[in-house]
């Protein structure tokens, strides 16, 4: 058996920017209106304790190991230039093990793609966008980490008359927002913690730039839905929610908040990346708790949805 390259090769696109994409999911029904395709761009300035896409954090391709799929045939060890030391610290991310693995147990998260290539994938589900007033959502990681690529994709979608949404943590240069705003129909904008010290502790960065960017977007009348991950013991206290309510109410134009209940479905992903999950003991919030928090926010005159 020889190694195979299952990746599809697109024609080179010399002039267009390229970007690092780690996943493309179709029939996304909770990332904006209608039936959508979500494009996940790799690389994020934050490192949230609860992140459910840890494979999207690093701005380089990396190897995921699905232990359950491994049949222990040893093919990966034979081709490894590090003599089979597959530990993350030594891995050069050359991808030979990915190519040889017959079971698909080793997967490369992150693929450099051209605009045309991504647009071809987006175009696949056109009939579903048309039937549902859906479209495309760019998520991550943090899509604004790759502003040139994102802007080019958004422009291409607008030319195709496909609705666009950008799912962002808000931590990006204001100039990046300037670049992408004209072609973004909807921002899905995360607000996590209003207390700056807590924000630094749990995400690794200050929230000041995030709040400022949101103010600017609101000021220029962009369509924004604020999304709040509700992480028990971290972001679910009444004080935080109240501060978010006050802040959103002060923005005027922004009037929609989605409360996203914490889930544990990503916990296994950390092991596959040889990383540690920081909040293994956290339980998902109860439906009653979610309702209670939503009700609190509604006091600020905000429309609140639980889930996306």
């Amino acid at each position: 058996m020889k190694a195979i390259d299952c990746g599809r090769r697109a024609a080179p696109e010399p002039s267009a920017p390229r970007g690092l994409v780690f996943d493309i999911k179709r029939y996304a029904i909770h990332d904006g209106p209608g039936i959508r395709t979500t494009i996940y761009l790799k690389g994020c300035p934050l490192e949230c304790a609860w992140c459910h896409n840890p494979e999207g954090q690093l701005g380089v391709p990396e190897i995921i190991f699905w232990t359950g799929r491994c049949i222990q045939c040893g093919a990966c060890l034979e081709v490894c230039p590090e003599d089979g030391d597959l530990d993350a610290a030594h891995c050069r991310r050359c991808g030979r093990c990915v190519q040889i693995c017959p079971a698909g147990a080793r997967e490369m998260a992150g693929r450099w793609m051209g605009v045309r290539e991504v647009m071809a994938e987006i175009g696949q589900d056109r009939v579903f966008y048309d039937s549902s007033a859906g479209g495309v959502t760019f998520s991550g990681g943090e899509p604004l980490q790759q502003p040139e690529f994102l802007a080019a994709l958004l422009r291409a979608c607008q030319e195709e008359e496909i609705h666009t949404a950008v799912d962002t943590c808000g931590f990006a240069a204001p100039s990046a927002f300037d670049q992408v705003s004209p072609d973004t129909d909807l921002f899905l904008y995360d607000l996590k913690l209003m207390d700056d010290a807590a924000h630094r502790h749990y995400t690794g960065v200050s929230n000041r730039l995030i709040l400022e960017n949101l103010r600017r977007l609101a000021h220029r009348g962009a369509a924004v839905t604020v999304r709040v991950p509700v992480i028990p013991g971290i972001s679910d206290d009444a004080g935080n929610l109240d501060a978010i309510g006050r802040f959103v109410a002060s923005l005027g134009a922004v009037n929609q908040v989605d409360l996203l209940p914490y889930h544990r479905m990503a916990a296994d992903k950390y092991g596959r990346l040889h990383r540690k999950y920081r909040i293994p003991a956290t339980e998902p919030p109860s439906t009653e708790r979610m309702e209670q928090l939503a009700e609190g926010l509604r006091q600020w005159g905000i429309a609140v949805t639980i889930g996306g």
Partner: peptide, 18 residues
């Protein structure tokens, strides 16, 4: 021939994925 079977199952284009 399990590696071959795995290759056929997991490293082969399959109908149903557009």
């Amino acid at each position: 021939n399990e590696p071959l079977r795995q290759l056929l199952l997991h490293r082969t284009p399959k109908y149903g994925n557009d």
